[in-house]
């Protein structure tokens, strides 16, 4: 492996990280918007946000990405590859994230809402001061899962010829012919990014829990707690996680 190849890879890592961050910001906005809309008192708001979630969870992220990149321009909107990728990933993972938001908000004890009513808080104050501060720390582990899934999803953008890590690997393979080395290295690079993301999320979770006077749960060296179907209020995350 020559220095030029490593340069190629690190350029790819940089684009991958950018793509992940942009998509994550969009996904977070969608997750909170749609997730809170699903707890609305108005049925029409609940219904429309439910349609959004079912639509984007039913769609394949790659097909959506292709549609945005190849079909949408025919309707008159030309999207740059990076933005088609960001939009597809952000909208899809936002739908999964909205289930996390909804689940965590609904898992806050109803008595907390009653206590906030008894103190005459407005509905928005109840959400902002009482419900969300308790729900957000619970969202951290599932958001971590989603962020890793999102990171893995950024590889799809290579198929739109965006110069992220997987695309750079393709270039490297074509120029060196050393497939095993090239793909071995970028798999490790992805793993390292995922590890760093997980450590950061664990840190955020610890912070969030400390700010409400609770200790975080113990966890292993690379622990992502995966969602498993089961009874009780459930916070689900990975694609295919239970709603």
């Amino acid at each position: 492996m020559t220095g030029a190849l490593w340069e190629l890879f690190f350029e790819g890592v940089w684009i991958t990280v950018q793509l992940m961050v942009y998509s994550a910001v969009l996904a977070a906005a969608v997750a909170f918007g749609i997730g809170l809309a699903r707890t609305s008192r108005l049925w029409i708001v609940r219904f429309l946000s439910g349609v959004y979630v079912e639509f984007f969870r039913g769609t394949s992220a790659l097909v959506l990405m292709f549609w945005l990149f190849f079909a949408l321009p025919l309707l008159g909107w030309q999207l740059a590859g990076l933005w088609a990728g960001t939009l597809a990933l952000g909208l899809s993972y936002g739908a999964y994230g909205s289930e996390v938001v909804r689940g965590s908000v609904q898992a806050v004890a109803p008595a907390q809402r009653e206590a906030a009513i008894a103190l005459s808080f407005t509905p928005w104050q109840r959400m902002r001061k009482v419900i969300l501060p308790q729900a957000v720390p619970e969202m951290m582990p599932p958001f971590n899962n989603l962020l890793i899934e999102l990171l893995k999803g950024t590889a799809l953008a290579s198929l739109l010829s965006i110069g992220e890590l997987t695309f750079q690997a393709k270039l490297a393979r074509l120029s060196t012919g050393q497939s095993a080395q090239v793909y071995g290295i970028i798999l490790v690079l992805y793993f390292v990014i995922a590890f760093v993301v997980t450590r950061i999320m664990r840190l955020l979770e610890r912070r969030a829990k400390a700010s409400i006077g609770r200790a975080p749960e113990k966890s292993g060296w690379f622990s992502r707690r995966l969602p498993i179907g089961g009874p009780g209020p459930q916070v689900t995350t990975a694609p295919g996680g239970k709603p």
Binding site: Q112, A115, A118, S120, P133, S211
Partner: peptide, 18 residues
């Protein structure tokens, strides 16, 4: 209801606030 205060069986303090 600003004129009314309530104390609950399960206290219902906000765990996120000191």
């Amino acid at each position: 209801r600003k004129n009314i205060g309530m104390v609950f069986q399960q206290f219902n303090l906000f765990p996120n606030m000191k």
